[in-house]
């Protein structure tokens, strides 16, 4: 029971909204989340921002305030490197996001039908998530080995061969393929959930009206899957923009595969720049990715079909 309007006007400020609930206890419940956000969200963020204006390098005693120098460096000293890594990330994201959805939707459609053994296939497609990135990287390093790999054997029968991961022209696409192989199962599960939420009656009505399979897909399935598409695209975009573990495990950033996220990890671990500079780069990338995500949000949330 909420307090009545008169009661609200009478009191100057009342923390309590329900007479039977102690508001302090309620607030206490939110405290753990607030603490974690402050410790793991606000603190690192503020520290990053503070660091970006200094040349801190492990020792606060020797750190100097350098103003916007780190920010300018992005466009001057580091320009060639940074822009090439951004471009690599863009190429990778574009090549991965859409095929990922297509694979996931196709797999979800295939597995949606009720047939014997469908759960076997469902779990088979989800399997890579269980294996872990280390295993996946090792498996694919062997798959694309110029001698022991099946692709090398296939090419050899035509008399050709390739360096695969060692070829700067195709290395990034190969990493994309690895991501597709390992990632589509996860997205498929979300699409599956979405598909199962579509009432059968729509299809049956359409079938009666004479719509064929393809039309049923385009006019019923696609619109009603909008919510799943939104979720999956969100995950795909943020995942590809932040991908660094596959690059680390397979090529260590060589052969034209350095994505920006890997670059950030690399300079942090190797310490090849001072921490202040690294913080600035992190902030730049954060602004970029957040803008992309918010733009995405703006366009896609609006178009969601309300059922």
């Amino acid at each position: 029971m909420a307090l009545s309007g008169e009661d609200k006007k009478r009191r100057k400020f009342s923390f309590r909204t329900y007479p039977s609930v102690n508001p302090w206890l309620a607030f206490l419940g939110t405290v753990p989340v607030l603490v974690s956000i402050i410790v793991f969200g606000v603190l690192p963020a503020s520290l990053t921002i503070v660091m970006s204006f200094t040349d801190y390098d492990g020792n606060w005693a020797t750190a100097d305030f350098v103003g916007l120098k780190n920010y300018f460096n992005f466009f001057t000293v580091l320009k060639t490197d940074v822009f090439s890594y951004l471009w690599t990330t863009l190429k990778y994201a574009l090549f991965t996001i859409l095929p990922l959805q297509i694979l996931a939707v196709s797999a979800a459609l295939l597995v949606n039908k009720n047939f014997f053994g469908r759960s076997f296939f469902r779990s088979l497609f989800f399997m890579p998530n269980i294996l872990g990135s280390t295993v996946i990287a090792l498996v694919w390093k062997m798959m694309f080995d110029p001698i022991s790999g099946p692709f090398a054997q296939m090419l050899a029968s035509f008399g050709k061969n390739s360096a695969f991961f060692g070829d700067p022209d195709i290395s990034l696409w190969l990493i994309s393929i690895v991501t597709l192989w390992s990632g589509f199962g996860f997205h498929m599960t979300i699409y599956l959930a979405g598909l199962q939420g579509i009432s059968r009656e729509y299809y049956e009505a359409a079938e009666i009206d004479g719509a064929n399979g393809w039309n049923r897909f385009v006019y019923i399935t696609v619109p009603l899957l909008r919510q799943s598409v939104t979720i999956c695209l969100w995950m795909a975009i943020s995942g590809t923009l932040g991908m660094s573990d596959m690059v680390l495990l397979i090529t260590s950033g060589n052969y034209n595969t350095k994505t920006f996220a890997f670059f950030l990890y690399d300079i942090t671990i190797k310490g090849s720049m001072n921490a202040g500079q690294i913080a600035t780069l992190n902030l730049y990338y954060f602004v970029l990715t957040t803008t992309i995500m918010l733009t995405y949000n703006h366009f896609f949330r609006k178009k969601e079909v309300e059922l």
């Binding site: 390093k141 080995d145 110029p146 001698i147 390739s162 360096a163 695969f164 991961f165 060692g166 070829d167």
Partner: peptide
């Protein structure tokens, strides 16, 4: 070098 030298793992 053999074809694909840049793609071969050193350990092999």
């Amino acid at each position: 070098f053999e074809t694909g030298a840049t793609g071969m793992q050193y350990s092999l």
